[in-house]
């Protein structure tokens, strides 16, 4: 369940069952045409690449840390209780001493609690970086996981914490349906799902809808590369009461412009207009949801 903070500006997650549907294209162009200052959060912390397009001149970075145990060798009796409790091999007891593996630690604090000799303390350990920059009207908040770290969700939560409450935010989610996606969606009020009218697109959209509904989040759909609908995508959306907020034509120019690292909304005015309309419709949708809940 998403706790709605009263007075906080709307947060819209852009998601899709898998990569390559145009999620990043939609996030960037929507942000560019938002009509007001907006935040764009790169929650794909394993592969953040929004700044390849935004090219912010200056990024201010802050480390994301997690509390990691530290063993005082003088007090450790080698009893093995910590290693036995740890589910993630973050701490291993060898009979004579305990070794900590920060990259596997989830920061649950169990080893500190279970140690009978008080040999374990906790210290912050860097697991990622949050970078904040500005590109025209867009405030970019990018999360980046340290290489080799397995705790993705805390970095995504740190991205959410860096967002300002007084400005709407677009959250570019990682692909898939696994826990990094749910960590991203848990900070959102609305989910915009990007798909295309292909068998792969429909199949993956169904997975993404199921994920959003597991979290009780309302969703809408952007259909990318919309052409002849042979798979019944529109029918599916209608049957599931999913509003289709934008259909982008299957236009090779979009692929060409995006491949250069440019935004189609900036280059081609007709697309600029489409994304402006998408922003308007989204605001109405979010208001509807907020009204329904109030």
């Amino acid at each position: 369940m998403v706790a709605k903070t009263h007075g906080r500006a709307a947060r819209i997650a852009i998601a899709s069952g898998k990569g390559g549907t145009g999620k990043t294209t939609v996030s960037l162009n929507l942000a560019a045409m938002f009509g007001a200052p907006v935040q764009l959060a790169d929650c794909d912390v394993e592969e953040p690449n929004l700044n390849l397009f935004l090219r912010c001149e200056q990024l201010t970075s802050t480390p994301v840390t997690m509390l990691i145990p530290e063993v005082d060798a003088n007090r450790c009796t080698g009893c093995g209780a910590c290693g036995e409790l740890c589910q993630f091999r973050g701490i291993v007891s060898l009979g004579t001493r305990a070794l900590v593996f920060p990259e596997l630690c989830h920061g649950c604090g169990g080893c500190i609690r279970v140690c009978p000799s008080g040999a374990i303390s906790e210290n912050p350990h860097q697991i990622g970086t949050i970078s904040v920059g500005q590109s025209r009207t867009i405030r970019l908040v990018e999360g980046r996981l340290e290489v080799g770290v397995s705790s993705v969700s805390p970095v995504i939560r740190a991205v959410h914490q860096q967002l300002r409450d007084d400005m709407p935010a677009i959250l570019d989610a990682p692909p898939g349906t696994s826990c990094p996606v749910t960590a991203t969606l848990l900070g959102a009020d609305y989910v915009l799902l990007v798909t295309d009218p292909t068998p792969f697109g429909l199949h993956d959209l169904k997975l993404a809808v199921a994920t959003a509904r597991t979290l009780n989040l309302p969703c809408g759909v952007v259909i990318n590369r919309a052409g002849e609908d042979q798979v019944g995508l529109y029918q599916y959306c209608q049957a599931e009461a999913l509003p289709v907020l934008l259909s982008l034509p299957d236009d090779r120019q979009i692929a060409e412009i995006t491949s250069r690292g440019d935004l189609v909304a900036h280059v081609l005015p007709e697309y600029g207009l489409m994304f402006t309309e998408l922003a308007d419709k989204l605001q109405q949708e979010v208001l509807k949801v907020a009204g329904g809940r109030a």
Partner: peptide, 15 residues
Amino acid sequence: NAAQGAGIQAAEIIV
């Protein structure tokens, strides 16, 4: 069978 840390666990077996 370990999702992660297979090497650590294998090392413990050797120890």
